[in-house]
Design a protein around this nucleic acid. Structure first.
Length: 228
DNA sequence: CCCCAGGCGTCCA
DNA sequence: TGGACGCATGGG
């Protein structure tokens, strides 16, 4: 159990301040259109972003970076265009399904006019859209305050002692929802800063802890955990 | 050669 | 409810 010194209500904003001081604003996920962000959210599942960029460029080049473009493209051709993003057969099918869902909702604007909790449930009903993809769409495409949890967030938070390494998505998300003000810009930057830290110093195999702005918090957490 | 990357659905106990 | 597995390319 967390010791009295591991004050989450204090630590959650503190971590943000430190990461922001170190890495600055990230201005993350500046897709040209909300639809492009939606496509990117699906394509980036378990995939390096550089590979997703190639796929999006190929779609754009083919004039298919729009709901009607995706809809009119045969699935095998779509798969070929997004080949670089990996799992291309699966993602082509799921992208088709997601676009069909957008059409059935009357377009992205109509879809995004739904209340956030309803919209999240509706997105989760689409095959291939799990919690992270749904929250990425909500936050980065629809501009709604839904905190995104990803592998970087889990790794950093578990090393900090904020959560167990096998924490569920909903539990970790609840930690941020509970200890932060509801603010789209803050959620946007915070998630991006976790990624920046995870790519830079908080690496899977060889973390460079001496360069980590959270090193003292991390060391303290490990001491508390060991003493428990 | 290895591991890793902004997951998700399915299957099975 | 939760753990194993398939999906697949590109970079370090």
């Amino acid at each position: 159990m967390a010791g009295p010194d591991l004050d989450l209500a204090h630590l959650v904003p503190e971590v943000y301040e430190r990461l922001f001081a170190r890495f600055g604003p990230q201005y993350w996920w500046p897709g040209d259109t909300p639809f492009e962000v939606v496509v990117g959210a699906l394509l980036t599942q378990n995939t390096a972003w550089t590979n997703v960029e190639r796929a999006i460029a190929a779609l754009s080049q083919a004039g298919a970076l729009s709901p009607e473009g995706i809809r009119e493209l045969p699935e095998t051709e779509l798969a070929a265009l997004i080949r670089s993003a990996g799992y291309f057969n699966q993602k082509a099918r799921r992208l088709k399904g997601l676009v069909a869902f957008i059409y059935s909702a009357g377009g992205l604007d109509a879809l995004f006019s739904r209340p956030i909790s309803r919209l999240r449930e509706d997105l989760l009903g689409v095959t291939g859209v799990g919690p992270e993809t749904a929250d990425s769409i909500l936050l980065y495409a629809a501009g709604m305050p839904s905190f995104v949890i990803d592998a970087y967030t889990r790794r950093v938070c578990s090393r900090l002692g904020l959560c167990p390494s096998d924490v569920t998505y909903d539990d970790l998300q609840a930690l941020f929802a509970t200890h932060l003000p509801i603010d789209v810009r803050l959620y946007n930057e915070y998630h991006a800063l976790f990624v920046a830290l995870g790519k830079d110093v908080c690496r899977p195999r060889s973390p460079r802890c001496s360069e980590c702005p959270l090193a003292d918090l991390c060391a303290h957490a490990h001491k508390v955990i060991e003493g428990a």
